[in-house]
């Protein structure tokens, strides 16, 4: 097992190298990031030349990549300069976005798991019942509804028509504490939390409906398959009661494929949901990615792509390990 882990970890290096190089090449094709600085009247052409030189943009692609890679592994310069947020480096920009994205994605992911797994089991155990059809309808609704459209519809209904939830943003600018307008960051922590939860309710709902739909269906089909296995019959023939048959004998087998799925959605925890974040104007990683790409913010885009690549590869790796933990038939050597 240990050797397997080491080998797998070593295999990640060339994969990541290839991903980053190809992305770097593609991102470079977006255009010259420094050219956009010309619209700023305080920036002289000599300054642009100087910045190009500092960031090795006057060198060939491969050299530029090597400098970038070096900076990524030893981030002395903080992964480069953000064009969008002048004066701040990429690392700072990304770091500032992580908490809100984590809160947003982790909450929706946990909720989606907690909802979809039991509902999937229920659906499987009551196959072809009215509730099963209802859940199936809901699942397909969730999966097939584009998040941007569903998000806008919710906004229209709950923010525009009835003012139950705010339309956008991650929190209010001001909170009223004891009759006074107080800046959000100055308000008590509990008030900050409530306000954030209120703002995130709709976007989290969008994500949960989307993820629950898919996972519910997977859980259902996995459980259905397991339910008719011979060993389930053996357990019943032994006199095991129905609850134990389902939760000990069937569930342990049915959850195995679901674990892979959850492992693969792990990058989403930090990567966030680009579309949902953008629609609801939540300044998380997802929206940052969108903005970086749209405004040729090369260093930010590159850093994000690399982070996603690492997370996806790691997510796979973790799913593989979890797989071996739950399924004794799988042993890595």
């Amino acid at each position: 097992m240990r050797n397997y882990l080491i080998r797998r970890a070593l295999e990640l290096i060339p994969v990541l190298f290839a991903i980053t190089f190809v992305s770097f090449w593609l991102v470079s094709k977006m255009g010259d990031p420094f050219a956009t600085l010309i619209i700023n009247p305080h920036v002289r052409p000599e300054d642009i030349q100087r910045l190009r030189h500092i960031w090795h943009w006057d060198e060939p692609l491969v050299i530029r990549f090597v400098y970038w890679l070096k900076d990524f592994v030893y981030p002395k310069a903080g992964w480069g300069l953000s064009i969008l947020a002048p004066g701040r480096n990429v690392l700072e920009v990304i770091k500032s976005r992580i908490p809100i994205t984590m809160a947003f994605s982790a909450t929706s992911m946990v909720l989606a798991i907690v909802i979809s797994v039991p509902l999937g089991i229920y659906s499987a155990l009551h196959q072809y019942s009215v509730s099963d059809y209802g859940l199936t309808f809901f699942a397909f609704f969730g999966m097939s509804m584009p998040t941007f459209w569903f998000g806008i519809m919710l906004m229209y209904l709950f923010a525009v028509k009835v003012h139950w939830f705010p339309a956008a943003g991650a929190h209010s600018a001001f909170l009223i504490v004891e009759g006074m307008h107080v800046e959000f960051s100055e308000a008590p922590k509990i008030r900050q939390f409530i306000d954030t939860a209120w703002h995130l309710a709709l976007p989290i709902f969008v994500l949960v409906v989307f993820q629950t739909g898919a996972w519910l269906r997977y859980m259902r089909s996995s459980m259905l398959e397991v339910k008719h296995q011979d060993y389930v019959r053996t357990a019943r023939a032994k006199g095991v009661n129905d609850r134990t048959v389902i939760y000990k004998h069937a569930f342990r087998n049915a959850i195995i494929p679901i674990i892979t799925l959850i492992g693969l959605s792990f990058p989403g925890l930090i990567g966030g949901a680009m579309i949902t974040e953008t629609i609801f104007a939540i300044d998380g990683i997802g929206r940052l990615t969108f903005k970086a790409v749209m405004s040729q913010d090369v260093f930010v885009a590159m850093a994000l792509i690399t982070i996603f690549a690492v997370l996806i590869v790691l997510g796979n790796f973790i799913a593989d390990i979890l797989y071996a933990v739950v399924d004794p038939r799988i042993r890595y050597s």
């Binding site: 019959r233 023939a237 087998n253 195995i256 004794p328």
Partner: peptide
Amino acid sequence: RGSEIAMIFQEPMTALNPV
């Protein structure tokens, strides 16, 4: 089931729970 009447099935591979 299992105490007074017990049963053995055809496929020992699939009749035992793999996990």
